[in-house]
Protein backbone atom coordinates (compact mmCIF):
# COMPACT_ATOMS: atom_id res chain seq x y z
CA UNK A 1 0.00 0.00 0.00
CA UNK A 2 2.46 2.62 -1.16
CA UNK A 3 1.09 6.09 -1.04
CA UNK A 4 2.52 9.35 -2.15
CA UNK A 5 2.73 11.98 0.49
CA UNK A 6 2.68 15.61 -0.36
CA UNK A 7 5.49 17.68 1.00
CA UNK A 8 3.76 20.53 2.64
CA UNK A 9 5.04 23.65 4.23
CA UNK A 10 4.19 23.96 7.90
CA UNK A 11 1.36 21.74 8.95
CA UNK A 12 -0.61 23.54 11.63
CA UNK A 13 -2.45 20.41 12.72
CA UNK A 14 0.75 18.56 13.58
CA UNK A 15 0.71 19.59 17.22
CA UNK A 16 -2.94 18.60 17.64
CA UNK A 17 -2.31 15.30 15.93
CA UNK A 18 0.63 14.57 18.14
CA UNK A 19 -1.46 15.34 21.21
CA UNK A 20 -4.21 13.03 20.04
CA UNK A 21 -1.77 10.23 19.34
CA UNK A 22 -0.25 10.50 22.75
CA UNK A 23 -3.63 10.37 24.41
CA UNK A 24 -4.52 7.26 22.44
CA UNK A 25 -1.50 5.43 23.70
CA UNK A 26 -2.29 6.60 27.23
CA UNK A 27 0.10 7.33 30.01
CA UNK A 28 3.11 8.27 27.92
CA UNK A 29 2.69 12.03 27.76
CA UNK A 30 5.98 13.80 28.29
CA UNK A 31 8.10 11.00 26.88
CA UNK A 32 10.81 12.26 24.54
CA UNK A 33 10.11 11.52 20.88
CA UNK A 34 11.68 8.47 19.27
CA UNK A 35 14.53 9.17 16.87
CA UNK A 36 13.74 6.78 14.02
CA UNK A 37 16.70 4.78 12.66
CA UNK A 38 17.56 5.76 9.09
CA UNK A 39 19.55 4.62 6.08
CA UNK A 40 20.83 7.42 3.86
CA UNK A 41 22.44 6.84 0.49
CA UNK A 42 23.50 9.05 -2.38
CA UNK A 43 23.75 8.33 -6.07
CA UNK A 44 24.35 10.55 -9.08
CA UNK A 45 20.79 11.88 -9.18
CA UNK A 46 20.03 12.45 -5.54
CA UNK A 47 19.77 11.26 -1.97
CA UNK A 48 17.45 8.56 -0.66
CA UNK A 49 16.51 8.38 2.99
CA UNK A 50 14.64 5.45 4.55
CA UNK A 51 13.28 5.70 8.09
CA UNK A 52 11.65 3.03 10.28
CA UNK A 53 8.44 4.46 11.71
CA UNK A 54 6.30 1.47 12.69
CA UNK A 55 2.71 2.24 13.60
CA UNK A 56 2.55 5.46 11.60
CA UNK A 57 -0.09 5.69 8.88
CA UNK A 58 -0.05 8.20 6.03
CA UNK A 59 -2.44 10.59 7.75
CA UNK A 60 -0.27 10.69 10.88
CA UNK A 61 2.93 11.45 9.03
CA UNK A 62 4.18 14.98 8.73
CA UNK A 63 7.08 15.64 6.41
CA UNK A 64 8.18 19.16 5.62
CA UNK A 65 11.09 21.33 4.60
CA UNK A 66 11.63 24.23 6.93
CA UNK A 67 14.28 26.52 5.46
CA UNK A 68 17.05 24.05 4.68
CA UNK A 69 15.92 21.52 7.26
CA UNK A 70 14.04 18.35 6.44
CA UNK A 71 11.68 17.56 9.30
CA UNK A 72 10.24 14.08 9.73
CA UNK A 73 7.45 13.67 12.28
CA UNK A 74 4.90 10.99 12.81
CA UNK A 75 2.60 9.56 15.42
CA UNK A 76 2.20 5.84 15.92
CA UNK A 77 -1.13 4.41 16.83
CA UNK A 78 -1.74 0.93 18.13
CA UNK A 79 -5.11 -0.79 18.13
CA UNK A 80 -5.66 -0.97 21.84
CA UNK A 81 -8.74 -2.23 23.62
CA UNK A 82 -10.56 0.29 25.80
CA UNK A 83 -9.42 -1.30 29.06
CA UNK A 84 -5.98 -2.40 27.89
CA UNK A 85 -3.11 -1.95 30.32
CA UNK A 86 0.60 -2.08 29.65
CA UNK A 87 2.43 -5.19 30.79
CA UNK A 88 5.75 -4.47 29.14
CA UNK A 89 7.00 -1.72 26.82
CA UNK A 90 10.18 -1.35 24.81
CA UNK A 91 8.53 1.56 23.01
CA UNK A 92 7.40 4.22 25.45
CA UNK A 93 6.61 7.09 23.15
CA UNK A 94 4.28 7.24 20.19
CA UNK A 95 5.92 10.25 18.58
CA UNK A 96 8.74 10.04 16.06
CA UNK A 97 10.83 13.03 15.21
CA UNK A 98 14.10 13.62 13.41
CA UNK A 99 15.54 16.46 11.38
CA UNK A 100 18.24 16.69 8.74
CA UNK A 101 20.04 19.70 7.31
CA UNK A 102 19.83 19.82 3.53
CA UNK A 103 22.48 21.34 1.34
CA UNK A 104 22.08 23.83 -1.49
CA UNK A 105 22.52 21.47 -4.41
CA UNK A 106 19.37 19.57 -3.47
CA UNK A 107 16.08 20.33 -5.15
CA UNK A 108 13.87 20.67 -2.07
CA UNK A 109 10.79 21.48 -4.15
CA UNK A 110 10.91 18.09 -5.84
CA UNK A 111 11.10 15.78 -2.86
CA UNK A 112 9.03 12.64 -3.18
CA UNK A 113 8.02 10.36 -0.35
CA UNK A 114 6.29 7.05 0.12
CA UNK A 115 5.18 5.26 3.26
CA UNK A 116 4.80 1.50 3.17
CA UNK A 117 4.45 -0.89 6.10
CA UNK A 118 5.91 1.66 8.51
CA UNK A 119 8.93 2.51 6.35
CA UNK A 120 9.20 6.05 5.07
CA UNK A 121 11.26 6.53 1.91
CA UNK A 122 12.21 10.08 0.92
CA UNK A 123 13.86 10.84 -2.39
CA UNK A 124 15.60 14.22 -2.65
CA UNK A 125 16.83 14.93 -6.19
CA UNK A 126 19.88 17.04 -6.94
CA UNK A 127 19.49 20.13 -9.06
CA UNK A 128 19.84 19.16 -12.67
CA UNK A 129 22.71 21.55 -13.37
CA UNK A 130 24.61 20.26 -10.35
CA UNK A 131 24.52 16.57 -11.08
CA UNK A 132 27.98 15.16 -11.67
CA UNK A 133 29.05 15.16 -15.27
CA UNK A 134 31.65 12.98 -16.76
CA UNK A 135 34.54 15.12 -17.91
CA UNK A 136 36.11 13.92 -21.04
CA UNK A 137 39.86 14.14 -21.13
CA UNK A 138 40.98 15.31 -24.51
CA UNK A 139 44.14 13.86 -25.88
CA UNK A 140 46.49 16.72 -26.70
Amino acid sequence: MATNTEITSRDSSAAERRGAGTAERRGNAGEPPIRPPVDIREDGEGITLCADMPGVSKDRLNLRVDGNTLVIEGTARLELAENEEALYADVRSSVYQRTFALSGELETGKIEATLKDGVLTVRIPKRLELRPRKIEVQAS
Binding site: L78, N83, Y88, A89
Partner: peptide, 11 residues
Protein backbone atom coordinates in the same frame (compact mmCIF):
# COMPACT_ATOMS: atom_id res chain seq x y z
CA UNK B 1 16.87 -4.93 19.74
CA UNK B 2 14.81 -5.56 16.63
CA UNK B 3 11.90 -5.80 16.70
CA UNK B 4 10.85 -3.73 19.71
CA UNK B 5 8.01 -5.30 21.69
CA UNK B 6 5.13 -3.89 23.71
CA UNK B 7 2.69 -6.09 25.57
CA UNK B 8 -0.74 -5.03 26.74
CA UNK B 9 -3.45 -6.98 28.48
CA UNK B 10 -7.12 -6.93 29.38
CA UNK B 11 -9.02 -9.44 31.51
Amino acid sequence: SFPAVNIGHTP
